[in-house]
Design a protein around this nucleic acid. Structure first.
Lengths: 165, 165
DNA sequence: GTGAGTCAGTCTTGTTACCAGACTGTCTAT
DNA sequence: ATAGACAGTCTGGTAACAAGACTGACTCAC
């Protein structure tokens, strides 16, 4: 996807954006989440070029984020849907949406996410340990076991140790 | 950033990925979060081309996600740092990291995020109303007040109403 | 049974963006 | 005086993007 091979970088963000580091992929995941699964529906909804749509779907499928299933055989027609791995992106989608709502949407949110069980809107990052909601200031970064110094993470390890406040 | 103008699309995800719809931008935000703020540090850490780094920094600055401050005057030297808007991306960064940890990291997480107050690792999306942790299956989508049918959202509104389970 | 339309693509042809590396200019250290 | 750090700009080749034409299998209306 990117010219530079980010999949090899010892950073989960780099690996994630190596697969999902373009705008269309996120919008495709959005549409699949909502329930649009057919090629033409995606194309019409997004206004995306067929070539690009084909490429993106192939890439997402290759990374096991979506799967293609035949829903009729003559003529062969396929539908795209999210895999478990793809559905696991939904919380990210929620936060991307909320960030856009907060900082980029003058007209109010075009779409909202709601907790199914209690029906109330508003989802946010929280600490799994104590349950408290968490904002940027509450988050501490630490180097993990898989960290390595290399391309894409040449200086990070030092910086993490240095600012390990 | 993208050829097709996603900023005009009535969808917060589209507006967000219009600004942050490429891999480098996220990695730059990552590095700024960690504390790397100088041009050369970013370039060395990421292994990114100077031209691209210049472009990305300009774009992020233009969208008020980062700011450039002079930390010495002769020779003029600047440092990049996150604005409030940029720091608000941190929860997204956390989830991107966790998704990568879970699905793309055979060697274990290279970096981890911890709740500063209680010291325990593990951050996840939770319902602000009832405090329960939330996964993809618990999330319900609803059309919001700012929704419109147009390029980038041609079919979404119908789909949202249709599957409004 | 012919023509219009749908669906899911592939192919072709510009245009644009990406990337590497060379170059510039100011300052600091030796 | 020379080397090196820093923060860029400039240049040229390659790769990705985008628009639209084309394919091909089918359905439905008439």
């Amino acid at each position: 996807m990117t010219r530079v091979d980010l999949a090899a970088v010892a950073c989960s963000i780099a690996r994630t954006v190596d697969v999902l580091g373009d705008a269309w992929s996120w919008l495709i995941v959005r549409d699949l989440t909502i329930g649009l699964g057919r090629f033409e529906d995606l194309r019409k909804d997004l206004g995306i070029s067929k070539q690009i749509l084909t490429d993106r779907l192939a890439n997402l499928q290759q990374h096991n984020i979506i799967e293609r299933t035949e829903y009729q055989s003559r003529p062969p027609r396929h539908e795209y849907s999210l895999t478990d791995r793809g559905r696991a992106l939904m919380p990210i989608l929620v936060l991307l949406t909320q960030w856009g709502d907060t900082w980029m949407s003058p007209d109010g949110p075009p779409m909202s996410f709601t907790h199914h069980a209690c029906g109330r809107p508003g989802l946010a990052l929280a600490c799994s340990g104590c349950g408290e909601p968490v904002t940027a200031d509450d988050i501490e970064l630490r180097p993990g076991p898989g960290g390595r110094t290399g391309p894409g993470t040449a200086l990070i390890a030092q910086a993490l140790r240095g600012t390990g406040s």
